[in-house]
Simulated scan of single mutants.
Amino acid sequence: MNDALDDHPHEVREFFGSRADGWDARFPDDGPAYAAGVAAMGLREGDRVLDAGCGTGRALPALRAAVGARGTVLGADLTPEMLTVAVREGRQRGTGLLLTDVSRLPLRDACLDAVFAAGLLSHLAEPSAGLAELARCVRPGGRLALFHPIGRRALAARKGRQITPDDLRAERNLRPVLAESGWDLVSYVDEDARYLALAVRRGEDGAPYGQV
């Protein structure tokens, strides 16, 4: 791995660590969008789900409610300050929190039914490898939700930028990266009020597993 990739986790940790305490206050109205994103996954009672790059844990209560008392919810994040806020806000209840790089998860193969990932793609040093690591941990037929509470155009406008043709989150760019990482993209929504790409883990023989 080159030096730039070696440095990437440290840069991500530094960026979010300095912003953790005020993170939720910057986006106070995102709660309903997170709940709707989780609902769209079609989780069932008893499912095992990971919030990859969980940050301050805004999706954790909705995931916990979706899988019920028999389910398992894990939240993984690289930044200890973000996880500290999740605990302070009580979002860790009934949840296991992992301080780890989601590109190197300390989980066994095929142990999950689903992964929820909010805003994760743009923070992966190697998106294909990161998505493949998530696929490793999900059983064939399991689900992946790549989510953001606002769409690409609205997010770019918020940051004073333009959408570029090479944006990985664009459907035409995302679909082949998911496919080479073990996922089939089955649903894609990119509108001002929500970004949500849903994918299904391919079978062990590479065959599609159908729709979410």
Score class of each variant (00 low, 15 high):
A4S: 13
A4L: 13
D6G: 12
H10A: 15
R13C: 04
F16S: 06
R19F: 01
R19P: 04
R19W: 03
A20V: 09
G22I: 05
D24W: 05
D24Q: 07
R26F: 04
F27K: 08
P28W: 06
D30W: 14
G31I: 03
P32L: 09
Y34C: 07
A35E: 14
A35S: 09
A39E: 10
A40S: 15
A40R: 15
R44F: 00
R44N: 08
D47Q: 02
D51A: 11
A52D: 07
C54S: 09
G57N: 12
R58I: 14
A66W: 07
D77K: 00
T84M: 07
A86H: 03
A86Q: 04
R88T: 10
T95A: 14
G96E: 15
T100A: 14
L105N: 10
L105F: 08
P106S: 11
L107H: 05
L107K: 05
D109C: 07
C111D: 06
V115D: 04
F116I: 03
A118L: 06
L121C: 08
S122W: 04
H123N: 14
A125D: 11
E126W: 13
P127N: 13
P127M: 13
S128M: 08
A132D: 12
A135H: 13
G141T: 04
G141I: 02
G141M: 03
G141Q: 03
G142P: 07
A145C: 10
L146E: 03
F147S: 05
F147V: 05
H148K: 02
I150F: 06
G151S: 00
R152P: 00
A154M: 00
L155R: 08
A156E: 01
A156G: 00
R158V: 12
R158Q: 14
R158D: 14
K159T: 04
R161K: 13
Q162S: 14
P165L: 10
D166F: 10
D167R: 00
D167Q: 00
L168I: 15
L168S: 13
R172W: 13
R175S: 13
R175E: 15
P176L: 03
P176G: 02
E180Y: 10
S181I: 02
W183D: 08
V186Q: 10
V189L: 14
E191P: 01
R194M: 12
D205T: 11
D205C: 01
G206W: 03
G206F: 02
V212T: 09
